[in-house]
């Protein structure tokens, strides 16, 4: 509960006034124009399905893992996708350890809505044995540094991690075709997820003056802003999710204007994500060539872990 005002408390009245009055003449504290995005850089870890996104001073890490589980009863032919957020107390003095706060829940819900409800990830292809075994994909988002606009950064981290995630290939065998074999990465090339489209979140901040709208607010601007709108769009011009949870009222025409700006920015960001993923894939392919020539201990380690998983899977089926 106290979290929401933590930023406001740390800033002096003069600072806030300065930010607000300079915004009236289209000036922002970090020198950007109102509709400029901060510098975005996407990095990937050594393992598949991990990403690190830096948006200005904001730093978010995404990590995707998969597990074989029995499906939900009402959706026997679909795998599942779940988003978990972790606001580390290291990132911001107002974040507290323990249960996720309101902001963490809202962030998770916005990303979840954008990815899941718009069916960006094909969940039907994650089914292995109908009603018995499906892949459950878990996305963990760790906030490492809060420089403002966590939603957009976390959303990009989630997308980048999902695009580079690869799950081991599974085949069915046995007399009745009910036995699942999980192939190790050495045996068969792991499969990427099927991603239909990329929903990119773009956040706008509104201030007490009607005409001031700003894209990608920094931490300081977030302390002054009176309202926020996050629009999640893809390159096909579809709106996948919108969140404006209360705050100052804005005209309908302003909302629509924001959506149009967001769709341009989303296209821009999609290409950046795709470029980053592509260069990762080339590096990865290059690494694989080396792997065959010199088998090292790490690969053995990996295969052991996967074999264990396959036994677990087989046990579940017997039940």
């Amino acid at each position: 509960m106290e979290q929401r005002l933590a930023n406001t408390w740390r800033m002096s009245v003069n600072d806030k006034k300065f930010i607000e009055s300079s915004l009236l003449s289209d000036l922002r504290v970090d020198g950007r124009r109102p509709f400029d995005y901060r510098k975005l850089s996407i990095k990937f870890g050594r393992e598949d399905g991990s990403s690190e996104v830096q948006l200005g001073e904001t730093h978010v890490m995404g990590f995707v893992t998969g597990q074989l589980v029995p499906p939900y009863r009402d959706r026997p032919n679909e795998g599942s996708l779940a988003i978990y957020t972790e606001f580390s107390p290291m990132a911001d003095p107002s974040f507290e350890a323990g249960r996720p706060g309101e902001n963490a829940v809202e962030l998770g819900r916005i990303i979840d809505r954008g990815l899941r409800e718009s069916r960006a990830i094909d969940t039907e292809s994650l089914c292995i044995l109908s009603g018995k075994l499906v892949w459950s994909i878990r996305v963990d988002l760790h906030i490492l540094d809060n420089g403002g606009n966590l939603v957009d950064a976390a959303n990009i981290a989630a997308l980048a991690a999902l695009l580079t995630f690869r799950r081991p290939e599974c085949t069915l065998s046995g007399d009745d075709g009910q036995e699942v074999i999980v192939h190790s990465a050495e045996e068969r090339e792991p499969l990427p997820l099927i991603v239909h489209h990329l929903p990119v979140a773009v956040t706008f901040a509104f201030f007490s003056n009607d005409n001031v709208v700003v894209i990608d607010p920094t931490h300081k601007e977030e302390a002054v802003m009176k309202g926020r709108l996050t629009a999640t769009l893809n390159t096909n011009g579809d709106v996948c999710a919108i969140q404006k949870g209360g705050g100052i009222g804005v005209l309908q025409s302003v909302v629509l204007q924001c959506l149009r700006i967001a769709s341009v920015k989303a296209a821009d960001m999609t290409s950046k994500i795709k470029d980053a993923v592509e260069s990762y894939n080339t590096v990865r392919a290059f690494r694989k060539v080396k792997r065959h020539s010199a088998p090292i201990a790490v690969s053995v380690d990996g295969s052991v872990a996967i074999k264990k998983q396959s036994q677990d899977g087989a046990q579940k089926i017997e039940l």
């Binding site: 718009s118 309202g227 804005v250 309908q252 909302v255």
Partner: peptide, 13 residues
């Protein structure tokens, strides 16, 4: 003025 706006699933602008 619009103060609350929430949407999910896919919809052209």
């Amino acid at each position: 003025k619009v103060t609350l706006l929430q949407m999910d699933a896919k919809l052209p602008i």
